[in-house]
Every structure is written in structure tokens, then in C-alpha cells.
Design a protein around this nucleic acid. Structure first.
Lengths: 239, 239
DNA sequence: ACAGGAAATTTCCTACACGATCTGAGTGAT
DNA sequence: ATCACTCAGATCGTGTAGGAAATTTCCTGT
């Protein structure tokens, strides 16, 4: 009999007190912030020294990042960050997004409860106008884009879809391919259109809006890569 | 200029000479074979002794298995195999499969090349008649089911879809929930129907066949779980 | 310029120390 | 007598340090 208020769930309390966990987050942040070039080598001992820990937690963190496909391991040679996506891989990625995200938008329009819709409105309110051309501004917009798409998947009520989306790390890949190209006002207006359809509980409109949004983005993204089409479009910073 | 025969791709040769990799496969096999009960504790030192290695590669392997969601980690307490799926999670899983697999079957019907179609026929030929009621027979059929669905996703030409499917580990969960329930002749006949549609290059029929197949399986699977519906359907082998 | 080889760096694994958690018995109070 | 609490021992996860094996790099000799 604790003195918990009725209706207050106690929660399983996170229990975060592992060095390896912090190391994992630190390395993930390094990759997400593009502080390590795509395809560049990631030294275990180097990171250990840099972070002031022993190699063991670094090794554990890198093993997890490998499963998340943020780094790749070459036996007896070490880890590298995942190379840039080829044109085929980017195409494949958007095909997958077109398969799951319009569906998610439709289900979100059908099933989102009041709390969910509030969160969606709050997210849209939180980034009224970016328009700035600075690096930080672009980064903030990219972060909003990530949150928005994850939120839509969450509102659809499917854990599997949300995780499948998150595991693509599509924003990381897009960011690395061209963090300069402004996905500015147009992105926001498309997000607003999706949001409106969800708030209006109009699944058909939500699906269509999401599909249009992705197809627009897909065209935007694929254009610059096609300059060097033909070859495998592999990056090798060392060579 | 090597002396390779024309048309023979040399391949990047796997370079498998890491103990941690073998340990990873060994533990994965243990889980897949259901040698460790769902939700049971997995001791690092215990596995290290059992496999005759030091704890370090075991930790690396478990870290990767955690990202694959085959085990879960409780800080300072160790790892456990993932618990049995609740009814909601199983429902969610089939919803996801219904989203991506009929699509994959349709694309496979459209795009599969001759080599792919040969592989599909070979897979279907390889398991002519199971019908046996033994555990091994069921296990063989489950293995065929896995290979079949992965192959369809592969023939669809989408790496993202194939990986998303593989990462669900749906066959592991189904197997653990009830490895007794015979998905015998009916499964094979449904597979044959899907195969026929793909070989006939009929996307509409392939999609419909896959959808029917999953819906049938879904009903089969969900029925026994509903016996104990209501509660969270959590398993606690220790208690 | 190119082949061969040795030194340096790095990965990978083992062995060990520390700290936290869990199990059980024992003690005390109700 | 039953229950709750406490406290020791054992067990296990976590991080550090060190050594063996492999790779990469650089240098030398032809």
C-alpha cells in the first residue's frame, strides 16, 4: 500500500546507470551530428581515449550500433560508419516509406485520440517559421521532420510500423546526402496539410497528403544524386 | 586480371574469423531452437563457461541480440530472452505483415526474373509433403515457411521490405506461442497458390493470395491466445 | 618504380577487481 | 505462531589492464 494517487502509474523507472549506455548515446550523437564522415573508420581505442573510458563499453556500444546499421564491422579491421546510400538504396528507401507512411497517416486519421491530436498540433505549433538559411536552422527543421513522421506512425497505433520507420534512419541518410538543400517552407506546408487531414479524421485525404509529401521529397532528393548516376556511387574518403 | 571465369562474381568473401561472431550465431541458434525459455534469464558468465570462451565476446553478442530484440537487458541484472508476445502485439505484428507482404507478393509477380522464379519453384519442390506430426516435421515446415516469405520479399526487389520482415522475427514468436498447432497441408496449399500467381506474373492474384494466407494464419494464431484474454498475457517463468 | 619485409598501430580476447543484486537464514516484533 | 525486517554469503554484471594475433604503413633494396 503505497501512498500513490489513484490513477497515477508508477512506471518501471528507467534505471540508467550504465557507462556503456552513455557511450552508446555519445557515439550515436557523433554519427547523427555528422561529426564522423560517412564511411570513415571508427577506432575503438580512439573513441575510448576520447571519451575517457576503457575499450569494453565502446565495443559493446559499437556492437549495438552495428545492429542498428549505423556502423558496419569488418573483422580484424574495425568499424566504419555506414557509407552514403547509393541511388538504388535511396530509391528503395522511398519506396518503403511510400508503402508504410501513407498507410500510417490514414490510420492516424482514423484512430488518433484527443491526446494524440493535441501532440500533433503542438508539434506543428512548435516550428512556426524556420525560413532561415543557417545550418542550425536546417538542423532544427530536420529534427522537426523526424519527430513529425515518428509521431504520425505512433498515432497510427502500430508499434511495428513505427519501429520499422525508425530503423530506416532515413533522416540521417537524407541529411548526410545534402544538408544544404533547403526543405523549407514547402515541407512545412505539406506537413500542415497532413495534419489538417488527420485532425479532420479524413483517412483518404491523409493518405494522399502523405503520399504527395513523400513523392515530392523523393523527386527533390533523387535529382542531385542522378548527376553521378551510372557508377555504384560509393564513397571512399580514405582513397 | 585474374583467371576468373567470365560471369563468375568473386564475391567479397565473408571473412568469418571472429569468435564473437560465432558466439553470436550460437546464442541466436539457442534462442531460435527454443532451447532457452521465453523470458528466462541468460547469464553472461554461464554462457561463457558453456561455450568455453571469456565473457567479453558473449557480451558483444548479447548486445547485438538486444538490438535485434531477441533479448532484453535489465541494467545491473543481466539479459533475458524476449517474453512471449501479448495478444495486442501479435495483432500488431499481423497488421504489419498484412501491410508489407501482399505488396511484396504483388511486386514479386511483376518483377521476378527467371533465376528468382526458379528459386521459388525449387523451394516449393523441396517440401513436397510434410504431414508428419512429429516435432522435427513441424520445425522443418516452419523453416520452409520462413524461407518462403523471405524469398517472396526478396523477389519483390526491395531490400528495405525484406529486412523489415526479417526483423519482425515473426516465425520465432509464432513458434514459441504454439509449436504444436499444425499449420500443415493448408499452409502448403496456400503457398502453392501464391507461387502460382507469381509464376503467372499476376500481381493482383498474388496480393490477394498472400492476404488470404496471412488472414487465415492470423485467425488460427489469435484463437488460442484469446482463451486467456483480458490480462496482459505476460509470462513469468521464475515466479 | 616496384617487390619484399619489418615496425607500429589496432583489433580481439583473456584474466582480474569492484560493485550491485539476489538468496537464504536468523532475529525480533506483533 | 506468523510475519516482517536485517544481514551475511554467493552470484553475476560491469569496467580495467594486459597480451597475442592480424593488419596497415613505411622503409629499404633491387
Amino acid at each position: 500500500m503505497s501512498s500513490a494517487a489513484p490513477g497515477a502509474t508508477v512506471g518501471p523507472l528507467p534505471r540508467r546507470q550504465m557507462l556503456a549506455d552513455d557511450v552508446h548515446e555519445a557515439i550515436k550523437a557523433l554519427i547523427m551530428e555528422n561529426a564522423i564522415a560517412p564511411g570513415a573508420r571508427v577506432s575503438i581505442d580512439g573513441l575510448a581515449r576520447q571519451l575517457g573510458v576503457s575499450p569494453t563499453p565502446v565495443r559493446e556500444a559499437l556492437a549495438r550500433l552495428e545492429s542498428a546499421e549505423l556502423v558496419v564491422k569488418e573483422p580484424l579491421r574495425g568499424y566504419r560508419t555506414t557509407p552514403l546510400l547509393t541511388r538504388e538504396q535511396l530509391d528503395d528507401l522511398y519506396q518503403f516509406r511510400l508503402l508504410i507512411e501513407p498507410w500510417a497517416a490514414g490510420r492516424a486519421a482514423e484512430q488518433a485520440d484527443d491526446g494524440g491530436r493535441d501532440r500533433l498540433e503542438a508539434e506543428m505549433r512548435s516550428c512556426a517559421t524556420p525560413a532561415d538559411d543557417t545550418y542550425d536552422s536546417y538542423k532544427a527543421l530536420a529534427a522537426h521532420d523526424t519527430r513529425f513522421h515518428v509521431l504520425v506512425a505512433e498515432l497510427a497505433g502500430s508499434t511495428q510500423v513505427r519501429r520499422a520507420f525508425e530503423r530506416t534512419h532515413c533522416h540521417l541518410h537524407i541529411f548526410r546526402l545534402h544538408y544544404d538543400r533547403g526543405l523549407g517552407e514547402q515541407t512545412l506546408s505539406e506537413h500542415r496539410r497532413i495534419t489538417r487531414a488527420i485532425l479532420d479524421r479524413d483517412p483518404t485525404a491523409a493518405e494522399a497528403a502523405m503520399r504527395d509529401h513523400l513523392e515530392t521529397a523523393c523527386y527533390e532528393r533523387l535529382r542531385p544524386v542522378s548527376e553521378e548516376a551510372g557508377g555504384p556511387t560509393r564513397v571512399d574518403p580514405q582513397g
